[in-house]
Structures are given as structure tokens and as C-alpha cells.
Amino acid sequence: MEAYNPKVVCFSCNFGWGYLNNEETLGATILNWIPVACSGKIDTHHILKAFKAGADGVLILGCPEGHCHFQDGNYQTRKKVCLIQKVLGAFGIEPERLDMEMAIDPEGKKIPQLIARMKNDLAKLGPVKRI
């Protein structure tokens, strides 16, 4: 049997994560990484569609509290994430498969590390048992 290699889709805010690095260079090394203008830009259907397309986990990287470039997009998405977690279970997707980290990392060095950490946790969960 082939080893299970969980797929993680990572959305990150451009104002907090990896902005000192060249997006293309960084992007070439990170699979399924989607930098966005603000974590508040990530809508519920983007997250659901990622799962629909086969993601085993979705990781959202936003700015710390009070640091949003657009007032409070990070806070808006934080609440959204909690609500979506409440719904995912009914579709057979454990709530832990959606996570949000609120911090700043100008170089973006932590992005691959956080993805690796999530993959590690997902490996323990195993593949999604969709209804």
C-alpha cells in the first residue's frame, strides 16, 4: 500500500507572511500555497472547495490580533473558521482538518514548517472518510 501523504492547502496573508521573500521563489517550494491580500478575503466556499477538491487539511495563516492591514480581516476569518469547523464534521471531515495560525513571518520560513506540522497531525488522522 502506498504511504499516505496528506495534501494541505495553505492560504496566507500577504501582509504578514513571506512579504520580504520573492513570492515565486517561495511558491516554487511550497505545494498548494495560496497567498491572498488579507486572510479576511478567504471566504467559506474557498475552504469548502479545497476539501471538495481533495485537500486533507486547510491551513490559514493570518496576522496577529490587532495587526490586520484592513482593520480586522483576520478576526473575521477567525470567527468564520470556528463556524466552519462546526459544520465540517457532518460531512465526515474532522474539525482539526481546518486550522488557523495568527502570527507574523516576513521571510515566510515558517510556512513550510507549519504545513509540515499539519501534515504530521493529519497523518495520524488518516485519509478523509467522506460521507
Partner: peptide, 24 residues
């Protein structure tokens, strides 16, 4: 449903993580 979830989350006015969870 996803549109409503986004709407609803933006109307929630609670700050801390535990308060958000409690409201939800």
C-alpha cells in the same frame, strides 16, 4: 449555506477564542 456562514460570522461580535466558541 457557505454565504450564510460568512454573513453570520461577520455579525458575531465576540472577541476571545473561547467566547467565539461559546457563541457558536
Amino acid at each position: 449555506a457557505p454565504k450564510f456562514l460568512s454573513t453570520l460570522s461577520s455579525l458575531l461580535v465576540v472577541e476571545r477564542d473561547d467566547e467565539i466558541k461559546e457563541a457558536i
